[in-house]
Amino acid sequence: MAFGTVARASKRFQAFDLLATLVVVIRHDGTIVFANSALEDALGTSRRTLEGAALGNFFVDAGTLRTAIDGARTNDFATLRYEAQLRRGTQEPLPVQVTLAQTDRKAELLLEMSPQEQQVRQDREVRLLDQAQANKELIRNLAHEIKNPLGGIRGAAQLLQMEIESRDLIEYTQVIIHEADRLQSLVDRLLAPHRRPHVVGDVNIHEVCERVRSVLLAEFPHDLEVERDFDPSIPEFRGDREQLIQATLNIAHNAAQALAERRAAGDARITFRTRIARQVILNKQWWRLALELHVIDNGPGVPDSIKDRIFYPLVSGREGGTGLGLTLAQTFVQQHHGVIECDSVPGRTDFTILIPLP
C-alpha cells in the first residue's frame, strides 16, 4: 500500500484511536487498511507494520474470519458477532469478541474487538455500581427506620432509671441505654458518607499513602512491614483527600488485621503500589488515563464464602467486625467516579483502587 494511501486512511479513521476497544478496518481480501492504537498496544506491533498486512495472520483460526468476510461481501448479513483469539507473539493468545460490520464504503469492513477479560471487568463494574446504589438506598431506609424508635427506647430507659431505686434494676436500664448508644453510633456510621460534603481539592496520591502508612505503623510498630512501590510520574488530581485517606485506610487496616498469623510469625507485609492505567472504562465511561492504587498483603486471602459479597454492608470475614469498612471505601471511591476491585488467593490479596485522571 502506498504511503499516501496509508496516511489518508489513518486521517479518515483517527477517531478510532479514542476507543479502548481494538478496531481494524480491512478490505474484502483481509488486508488491513487501518489499525487503532489500542490494537497496536494489544498486539505489540506498530501501525506501520500492521497496515498492509493480512489480518488473518493475527488470528489463531483465520478460517472463521474468512467465512465472516465472505458473508459480509455477499451481503448475507449487515453485522456479525463471534468469538476468536488474537495472536500476540510469544504471549498467550488474547480471547476477544469480534463485531464485524460494513463501513460506508462497500470495499471496506470494520472489525471491533473487545477483549473478553475487559468485557467481564466492565460487567463486574456495572454490577458493583448497581450494588452500591442498592446498598445506599437500603442503608438510608434502614438507618432512618432504626433511628426514630431507637431515640424513643433510650429516652424511655432514662426516664425509667430516674423512677427506680433498685441498683440491680438500674443496671438493666444502663444496659439498654448503652446498647441504644451503640446502635446509634452504628447508624451514624452508616449514614456518614451520605451526609458528609464532598470537599474537592488537589490530591497527591502518594501523600495519601504516606498518611495511611504512618497510621498503620503507629498501630503495628514492630510486627508489620509496609512497603512503597510508587510511580513518581503520577500527577495530582482533583478529589476529596480525606475521603481517599479513609478509603485507603479502611482497606489497609482490614489487611493488617487479617495478617495476625503473619505478624506473629514476623513476616507480615503490606505493599502500596501506584501505577498509571491507560484507556480504561470505568462506570461505562472511557478514560484515557486512570490511577491504579494497589493495596497488597501476604495474608490468608478473602474467604471464599464472602468473596462475592465483601462490599456489601455488614458483611465481615473477621469476628467482631462491623462489615462497614469496605462498603464505605467503595462509596468514597465511587464518588470520585472510580471503583475498587479485589483479587485474592491464599498468600496474596490485592485491592485495587481505580480513579480516572483528567
Rank of each mutant, 00 (worst) to 15 (best):
P346H: 09
V25W: 10
V339T: 03
T21G: 06
L259R: 03
L55N: 05
P300Q: 10
Q133W: 08
L150E: 07
Q184G: 14
P197V: 15
I306N: 09
P303V: 11
F351L: 06
D297Q: 10
S233E: 08
Q133E: 14
I69W: 01
P149E: 05
L109W: 01
R195D: 07
C342A: 08
L357Y: 01
E219S: 02
I281R: 11
T99L: 01
G323Y: 01
A277W: 07
D188T: 08
Q330A: 07
S114V: 08
A255M: 02
Q122A: 04
F332G: 05
N57H: 09
I26H: 03
I146T: 14
F13I: 05
D29E: 10
R182P: 08
R27W: 03
L18C: 13
V203P: 00
L19S: 12
A15S: 13
A78T: 09
L289I: 14
L86P: 09
F237H: 00
E51C: 07
Y312V: 12
D41H: 11
D231Y: 10
A101D: 02
A255V: 00
V203M: 06
H294A: 15
Q279N: 15
G320F: 01
Y172Q: 05
L160S: 06
A252T: 00
L94F: 04
G56M: 02
E137M: 15
N254Q: 10
E112I: 15
R87K: 14
R238S: 12
R278C: 08
K307Q: 14
Q85K: 15
I281G: 03
L129Q: 07
L328A: 04
L19K: 13
T67E: 11
